[in-house]
Nucleic acid binder design. Structure first.
Lengths: 363, 363
DNA sequence: TTGTAAGCGTTATCAC
DNA sequence: GTGATAACGCTTACAA
């Protein structure tokens, strides 16, 4: 610990230049690694910088270059392992390309998202990755695009925003497959639980807070039900179940209906834990009393008994793709289609069985 | 979408001032909300700013004020739900106090941590929260402190860094309790598995990459074993088991020993999943064939059968405390003790039982 | 209250 | 190659 204790004012290029007895511009060229500098000067400057404990001021640098080498990421809930894993995909990719990451957590609140977008613009991030909280209220997103900063949407797309990059999975298709799987086992009363709100959809009027991934899943489920000739199937859809007690309350309410669902699809792993916990609380077992499918696949899903039938998404890859795409945009390289849809897969395990009482026409 | 499409150069205070027909400084005062401005001018400036689509340049602002309203967070693995939850505590607290958060993920690699520290200093963050990857290699951390920026250590402390703030849990105590619990059930062969390396400890020579939380846990376990008269107990300690197949390999190796452990303690939930998965693979059941305890408590631990006996840490609160403490330092308010130790609790569930063959002296 | 002018620490431009 | 000097967009004296 011999370094000179740098106090008060930071050491600047001017200080280094003086110490190395060269002009400020020369020192700057050497330190910044641009322009041409003689070996002799380079060494003197290097020595002076080290002696003084020089640290470049990134703010000043960014101010002239106009680039901050930073990307802003705005997600709904970093506690959700889905976003944790996607975030690792993003940070891994960003770091490899020389970018830093600023993170904002919105709690899926639109105003927090708007706020974060403004702050990030003020911080002059080079680009944005956003998992938008609303399908329709996207003025702040179009502001971002108008500001000339690249924007990549993660996990969800929005209405009325042309040519925006989107990285998402084929929610409708896989949700349809999941519902079909349940229908094939004889289920007609299938519940779907999410903490988010329903997006633009024929089945709801005020859709201001909706999210596309949710409406896609709902559409997939309802389409399958419809084809199977089941009607009034939307009665088991539950939105806005905030994590924790909210999910448990919704689960209880559902299972106490006169005609409770015979199968439940949970929209993410956090919800799944709440649902499964409450089912156990209610003395109900999976899949004997109720079948169960969850979105996302983490190893604990295979450790539970019964092992959970899940919808596996390439989460890390989605993060990587979002960051890759964003950085390509930032650096002026446009690659591939703006909308990139990853497949998700229904992984059959043991949490789905024919319903208890009716319709035991096993396929 | 009527906003004028701001192109090329950003709108500056000068532009707004010209539009509002006032001096640059006046417009700046009004926009920045400092100094005194007449209502008349305030309105004209406001109107001009909106018309032009002005967005403050935070970089320029930070450059004069010397403050960026940003805190840098450096963690080992954001994918680990522990850090995900702690991160939420940090971001929630930071946002409430008007701070943004920059995140760096090191993969527990020291060089990545050093790099991140340098970059964050260059970005002029107001303070640091770091979960250090090494107990002893901390020059970059003392550099941070010498630069005059507050630093709070999260989850782990380090050697040779005086007066640094630390927020951690009482790992040694709770690890001792966990081991004692196993010993009371008759276990003498207790394994401990972590992805990290062992910190400064009498039981290892080269401790450069060690982490204090790990050595504290090891010390707690070995102390309990020692008191119980068990020797050579360190033979079941496993460090540096990288997540995924690494953990599984270590688990297999342990269970294939001539004298395999009769109990396993996993150092976090990610490791626990790997261990439990491999145990099942090996056809071993918990707790009949081997007892099991994991650090961290997430709801899936209660959904598994048997429900997992765990060591519950106040993770979110640790994040909140770290951010709170850091912000207090940044703002010149020094509150409480530099080292804050939170309690952790052993939560008894069903994954611990007496060992199969020997020592069935149940307490 | 408002205006003028001088910084903040870089990079960029243009001579030499 | 190297050295002056002007930006970058804001805040902060200091006057008026």
């Amino acid at each position: 610990m011999n370094e000179p204790t740098a106090r008060r004012r930071d050491v600047t290029v001017a200080d280094v230049a003086r110490e190395a007895k060269v002009a400020k511009a020369t020192a700057a060229r050497s330190l910044g690694g641009y322009g041409a500098v003689s070996d002799d000067v380079r060494q003197r400057v290097q020595a002076a910088a080290e002696a003084l404990g020089y640290h470049a001021n990134g703010l000043a640098r960014s101010m002239n270059t106009g680039r901050s080498n930073t990307i802003g990421v705005i997600v709904g809930d970093i506690e959700n392992p889905y976003f944790g894993l996607a975030m690792r995909g993003i940070t891994d990719t960003a770091k490899a390309a020389g970018y830093d990451v600023i993170l904002a957590n919105t709690g899926e609140q639109l105003d927090a998202e708007i706020d974060a977008a403004r702050v990030f613009v003020e911080k002059r991030v080079d680009g944005f990755i956003v998992a938008p909280a609303s399908f329709t209220l996207t003025d702040h997103l179009s502001d971002i695009m108008h500001s000339g900063r690249p924007l990549v949407l993660l996990d969800r797309h929005v209405a009325n925003l042309d040519d925006v990059d989107v990285i998402e999975v084929d929610n409708e298709k896989v949700a349809h497959a999941a519902a079909q799987h349940l229908i094939d086992r004889g289920h007609e009363r299938i519940a779907f639980i999410t903490t988010l709100e329903l997006g633009s959809n024929p089945y709801q009027a005020g859709d201001e807070l909706g999210v596309s991934s949710v409406s896609a899943r709902v559409n997939g489920i309802l389409a399958a039900m419809n084809t199977a000739g089941v009607d009034n199937s939307e009665r088991y859809l539950r939105f806005g179940a905030n994590s924790g007690s909210g999910v448990k309350g919704v689960t209880r309410e559902l299972m106490q209906l006169e005609e409770p669902p015979t199968a439940i699809i949970a929209s993410d792993s956090l919800i799944a834990m709440g649902v499964l916990g409450e089912l156990r609380e209610l003395g109900l077992t999976v899949p004997d009393d109720v079948s169960f499918i969850m979105f996302d696949d983490f190893e604990w899903a295979t450790l539970i008994s019964p092992a959970l039938t899940v919808i596996a998404q390439p989460v890390y890859e989605v993060g990587v793709a979002a960051a890759t795409r964003l950085i390509a945009r930032i650096e002026g390289r446009v690659t591939g289609e703006p909308i990139q849809v990853f497949p998700a897969a229904l992984v059959h395990r043991k949490s789905v069985a024919p319903p208890r009482v009716v319709g035991r026409d096993d396929a």
